[in-house]
Design a binder for these strands. Structure first.
Lengths: 225, 225
DNA sequence: GCAAATTAATGATTTATTCAAG
DNA sequence: CTTGAATAAATCATTAATTTGC
């Protein structure tokens, strides 16, 4: 990291600090989740700034807020995964959430189309089963996954301006499914402790955050865990 | 904290990252130690900026460097103290250092007078026994000791511009000694695991970092450990 | 003396934990 | 109860001390 606590607001009376905190807009959370699930789980400073600028379209944010968000996202992902690991396991297709009812937690809150995108293929996933509650998880540690996407422009899916076309159709457990091209957050999509096998029997490699390292291939067949 | 890693330099060839790091000047270390030992162990952002500006008189520094320095100083203080706690203890007047000989470690390197001060009474201590190697230590945790010295100007001893006059004379173990007015880092001055008693028998309170919470009183007698 | 090799210090990064706003 | 913010602990990585062989 860099700097340190910012104390964005300080009461003038100096007696009671009473800080307030950033409350991310649903649109912002969608963007952040999208980026995280696209595999960029620990954006370097440079990227953080770009992300912040993106988010600012929907409300004021600081670089620090973005940094914190990713830090907490990683941390809590990992923790939940660990708890799952030690206690009951092998719950396939489980929504991963703890609280009961609707749990419109965080993203997927509002209804409308947020981004100035071509409506489809933003952070789809939705066509497949669970309403992912943002519970992608991992195990050990990672170092320097930065350097994604070379020198270029906008690495993330839709939130950016010029994005890659769209989704591809694959067969998962025999069911034709639309998935986005590129890395996929397996656990966030299908639930915890999930593995994906190609029809050849080969296990698809995922990183520590449960994200597929390569895109699924159009028209291919895969099987879950 | 705030931001995050900065990657101050990046090789243009992109093959070998080879980052370099800030190497504080002895003068800068003296200033930092002085501030830390004065009791400000976790300066808030605002203070950090002021400290950085001070340090810049002796070489380029960033706010982040200052923040890191205090963070590491606290952390390593605490760790060393913990190790002392668990293993052998009660080594009085021990220089706290591990390596053998002269150990002109870090600060106290050059000979001349660093600060544009009135030569005397900068970060004295020196008149008393051990050549403090910067081994002040503490125990558990602290939160918000900020708010020192009210709204004002320059809280630290000499490095700042307009400083408090000077030192006072007290008797320690019967020996007349010059100590600076204000908080004193007990362990850095006298060694690890040291306590100071007033001649009345009362134990002087120190904070978690081994720093006296109040100034010694001119002419009084104190006893070590 | 000196430079390569080794070790010790310490700046910078990441992870874990804790606190508190909402 | 969730989660943004802050901090501490652990770790990584580079720089300075030092040791060693010539």
């Amino acid at each position: 990291m860099d700097e340190q606590r910012n104390s964005p607001n300080r009461s003038s009376t100096a007696a009671e600090p009473v800080r307030s905190r950033w409350t991310p807009k649903p649109e912002q959370i969608l963007i952040l989740e999208s980026i995280f699930n696209s595999g960029m789980v620990n954006p370097p400073k440079e990227e953080t700034v770009r992300i912040r600028k993106l988010l600012e379209r929907f409300g004021s944010v600081g670089d620090a807020n973005v940094f914190y968000w990713f830090q907490n996202r990683r941390s809590r992902s990992r923790r939940r995964q660990r708890q799952l690991q030690t206690s009951g396991g092998a719950v396939l297709y489980e929504p991963a959430s703890s609280s009961s009812s609707s749990t419109s937690s965080s993203n997927s809150s509002g209804g409308g189309s947020f981004f100035p995108c071509s409506s489809s293929a933003s952070s789809s996933f939705s066509s497949l089963v669970v309403q992912h509650d943002g519970g992608g998880d991992d195990l050990f540690s990672i170092s320097r996954q930065m350097g994604f996407m070379g020198g270029g422009q906008n690495p993330y899916g839709c939130p950016s301006l010029d994005h890659q076309p769209g989704t591809i159709t694959v067969f998962i457990n025999g069911i034709p499914s639309e998935v986005p091209r590129g890395p996929i957050d397996l656990r966030a999509t299908f639930g915890q402790n999930v593995m994906l096998l190609h029809s050849s029997g080969e296990l698809l490699p995922i990183n520590e955050y449960g994200i597929l390292l390569q895109s699924l291939q159009m028209g291919e067949s895969y099987f879950l865990s």
